Amino acid sequence: MGGRKVPEFKTDDEAEAFLEQDLSDLDFSQFKPSPFEFKPKAAQLNMRLPSSLLEALKGKAQEKGIPYTRYIRQLLEQDIAGR
């Protein structure tokens, strides 16, 4: 696909203005699926980890731009799903 890239927006107004145009020529290969968390989190897990492991998890989560608790939950979900 050789369509347009989505620019980075500095304000919500810029994003809204972008969405008001014809977007049929966008390069959709630039998008990644984003899992939405619809199920409520009713159970809680507390665990002790070595500081080095926790810091490594936090670093990986930061690289992905998500909170480290969400990253840990994603790792667990992926393992259970066999991915």
Rank of each mutant, 00 (worst) to 15 (best):
F31M: 03
L53I: 07
P50T: 07
L76A: 14
F18K: 01
Q62E: 13
R73W: 05
L23A: 06
E20W: 05
E63W: 08
S29T: 15
D79V: 14
F28H: 08
E63P: 02
P40I: 07
E55Q: 04
F36E: 05
Q44D: 12
E14N: 07
L75A: 05
R4S: 14
Y68H: 11
K64T: 00
Q30L: 03
D22F: 06
L54G: 00
F28W: 13
L45N: 09
Q74T: 02
S24N: 12
R73I: 08
Q78Y: 09
F9N: 08
Q44Y: 15
L19S: 11
D79Q: 13
L53A: 06
K32C: 07
K60T: 01
P35W: 05
Q44C: 12
R4F: 14
R83H: 12
P7V: 03
K10F: 11
M1D: 08
A42D: 15
N46L: 06
L26D: 02
L57E: 00
P67M: 05
D27W: 09
G65Q: 04
F38G: 11
Q44L: 14
L54W: 02
P50H: 07
L19G: 14
Q21Y: 10
K64W: 01
S24I: 07
Q78P: 00
L19W: 12
L49R: 00
